[in-house]
Nucleic acid binder design. Structure first.
Lengths: 289, 289
DNA sequence: GTTCCGCATGAATCGATAG
DNA sequence: ACTATCGATTCATGCGGAA
């Protein structure tokens, strides 16, 4: 890792996202996770980008993100288009098409299904309880650690697998085909299964009193899936620091960028609170050894 | 209703979708619900449209659908883009943009979350467990009956709802429809809440003889939401008749189009089975009065 | 009649193999 | 090289037969 990079590690740079991104070296980031400022046609709104300008505003950023990302790294973009004038706006899907022209591969679209979404009632639509998590990559093969996000198998299996019949066992064995000891590992493996591309996470954020646009568990899920410990995660719109907290929790390094000084301050406070809470843990850990 | 229209009511026309659509009069349909043939680059596949041609293939159809739909009617398009060469293909989002140019409003995108999705394991992606249900309208104000799709409130009932199979839902509907009068509606108002734009429905599997691409509960949900009894629902790709069954269950009229004679036959068989099963119910209903 | 258990089967996707 | 086909992987559910 370069000297300039080491100096930025686990820090939140205050400044314009595009300018700061340009100061980062090539191919140094393992995962970009971010939830950029939403489009907004109202004036005088914090960080709101007019809908008509959204794609043109984002494209220089995505180009820089492609430059700083490692070739086998991943970019996850959490975004949802606004409703305006009774219609879903199209800037997000236009952005996908334009990013492909930049050379990005649109690998997958995850759905973040918000269990407790914003309340409300409208005559012509229901509450919006999902957001897109768009996965982009630079090349077809990329790092992915699926075992890190396995989930407990469904309730149906408790009845079903609690009493494995002889035929079940036999069938499993025959399927394995080669090698010994695989029986046991297969059976143990059935406690957990791979998830799907729909995430069911509550909207609540872990830090009370501070508004984050997404819960820590959202970046945490993608960080576990696409990085290993000591890897480097970038969030060019760090906001109140949720991605950084997820990195601290998981032993990953982070680089954040945030234009608003007030938000940067909030993020630093969150991080300090995390460190304070973990200092005692570290001591306890040390005592255990 | 015109004479020509009355002759088509509750029938499945066998023929090419575009040709048959052109024979329908203007502004006569309350809801279009369909799941068109999915794109497929493989040759020799039934009804598969090559990915590169998909948008051009669909646009003449969507134009006709706009013509036959009532001004305050709704078009719901159930579709999901394929993965090809490690990427999500873009023809669906391109289609949205092109349909807007035709004058359609892209009002909403519902997510159909399939709990029992296709199994499999791959190094670079998880199982795909969701599909798009794109809502399009001709004008900003359209008919919507939100009370018809309210769901039970509370965690215990949420858990129960998530475990409701398609047959359970159908049974629920029939129970609701069997005339408890005001008692039920009062009870409904207190115990039930409006749903969100995410639908949790299992796919129907182990169906004998044919593969139904979606469960009856999927069209049923949109039919309840966007139509009233005696309204007219169109499915230009009727397949094995799932949309027709939903209409029969809910007392709506339907017009179906299906090119493949074998599928049309399957649909007729399903409908006949439905009528046979309901004949006894009708007798019972008559006895009650 | 219920309840339980065994089994088949998906609007899938990738990588290897064959033409 | 490039394309077409095939086998392997995997989990939630409905259905049918058995207890």
């Amino acid at each position: 890792m370069t000297v300039e990079m080491t100096a930025l590690l686990d820090r939140i740079i205050q400044g314009d996202a595009l300018t700061c991104l340009r100061s980062l070296p090539d191919c140094c980031i393992d995962l970009v996770f971010t939830s950029p400022p939403y489009a907004d046609n109202r004036k005088n709104t914090y960080k709101g980008i007019p809908i008509a300008e959204y794609v043109d505003w984002f494209l220089p950023l995505s180009l820089e993100l492609k430059r700083v990302l490692k070739n086998d790294g991943t970019f996850v973009l959490n975004i949802k288009e606004r409703t305006e004038d009774g219609e879903r706006q199209t800037y997000v899907i236009e952005l996908i098409l334009e990013m492909k022209k930049q050379g990005w591969l649109w690998t997958e679209e995850f759905i973040w299904c918000k269990k407790n979404c914003y309340p409300g009632k409208w005559p012509n639509r229901f509450r919006d309880s999902w957001e897109r998590c768009l996965q982009f990559n630079k090349q077809k093969s990329f790092k992915m650690y699926q075992e890190a996000v396995m989930v407990p198998i469904g309730d149906w299996s408790k009845r079903r697998l609690s009493k494995l019949s002889a035929t079940d066992l036999r069938r499993d064995e025959s399927r394995v085909g080669s090698g010994f000891g695989k029986n046991v590992s297969n059976w143990l493996g059935k406690q957990y299964v791979y998830p799907t591309n729909v995430l069911h996470l509550p909207t609540e954020c872990a830090n009370r009193g501070h508004s984050a646009s997404f819960p820590v568990s959202l970046p945490a899920w993608f960080i576990k899936l696409f990085t290993q410990e000591e890897d480097l995660v970038l969030d060019p719109f760090m906001g109140s620091g949720t991605t950084a907290i997820a990195c601290l929790d998981l032993g990953r390094h982070y680089v954040g960028i945030e234009a608003m000084e007030s938000y940067q301050k909030l993020a630093h406070e969150s991080i300090e609170r995390w460190r304070a809470a973990n200092r005692s843990n570290s001591r306890q850990m040390a005592l255990w050894k």
